[in-house]
Write a protein that binds this DNA or RNA. Structure first.
Lengths: 190, 190
DNA sequence: GTCTATAGCCGGATAGAC
DNA sequence: GTCTATCCGGCTATAGAC
């Protein structure tokens, strides 16, 4: 904390975060991260024991990032419907990235589903944050199947990401995001 | 055609098909395929120039496989609604695989979205077959936005695959497949 | 804390005997 | 057509100087 090394550590995690998203975890090498940060490969092992440890740090960073985003949605309004809409609005600004590389959360989980169980459960943590938050909103709206609704909404968004990315279809992505917003707006207030 | 080598070629493609699904394309090595088939690594280059060529052969095989499946759905009934239901029913038998490794079509596209454009467009071919077929069914039901409907249905199924696999949630998968069937049943007949 | 050098392994791809 | 031996490069990870 506060030492010089924390800067390097943070820079490694931030570069790895981007690269894991755009190229995938397995296809990202230490050399890639070294090139992006200017920090030599061998130095990484001062901060992380293994590549898996870097992934864990990236997931931790993403969890914190999403917690902040969701907190921001909470702070905007007390209406759960508008909170969900605020979250959907934030996705709008990620459209280009989604078309290029899919959803950062979903694509990582999908990739690591074919890897060790340890990496799978680690990558799942980001989804769990969002799922829990969505569940709270549906719960506040009076749904007694709030968690099921959260899963449905998560799945809907993931499907849109996968298909719009696979077909590189910007129109479909736009139309689907609008559809999600319309659906949220139409939610009964318990 | 008909020569001895076609057997080996087919066995390589079939093994690669499974491995690309369960481990991913990038994480599958020639050694893995060699081990599964008993065919030595070096021999592969008699049948394929590069690893990418093996992927192309795998995609071609999957396209043919899905064409047969869809043809089978067509042959069962003339009612487009029932054809779509028949397709959804076939997914039911893949539940265990989906929980383990996601949708074979979607997960391959998601992985290769982070690779070269050549691999991306190749992997997309399987989706295109299904999309076109779904579009035909919606068209026959009288929808003038048949292709949009096909994309929506594709996305819905993909979302279910990604989320049920990420959370290893069999109940969600079952519930969502039932939901898809209910939705198909409720489709207006033009 | 930072960096260089390198070990050790495994990847895709090739050459050439049979 | 089939198989063995091997090249070359990139990978993660380590050792040790500074």
């Amino acid at each position: 904390m506060g030492t010089k090394g924390d800067n390097n550590r943070t820079r490694i995690v931030e570069a790895a975060d981007q690269l894991f998203y755009k190229r995938g975890y397995n296809q990202t090498s230490f050399s890639d991260i070294a090139e992006m940060t200017g920090i030599p490969r061998g130095n990484f092992y001062y901060y992380f024991k293994t590549k898996d440890d870097i992934l864990a740090a990236v997931v931790d960073a993403r969890v914190k990032q999403y917690q902040q985003v969701l907190q921001q949605c909470d702070s905007m309004t007390d209406d759960p419907r508008e909170r969900l809409l605020a979250f959907a609005d934030m996705l709008d600004s990620s459209k280009n990235s989604i078309l290029e590389a899919g959803c950062p959360v979903g694509s990582l989980c999908s990739e690591l589903a074919k890897d060790t169980e340890a990496l799978q459960s680690k990558s799942r943590e980001v989804f769990e944050i969002i799922r829990e938050w969505m569940g709270k909103q549906f719960s506040a709206l009076g749904y007694d199947d709030a968690d099921d609704r959260a899963m449905d909404l998560l799945a809907r968004m993931q499907g849109v990401s996968v298909i719009s990315c696979a077909f590189k279809d910007n129109d479909f992505l736009q139309r689907s995001l609008d559809g999600v917003r319309t659906w949220i707006n139409s939610l009964a207030s318990s």
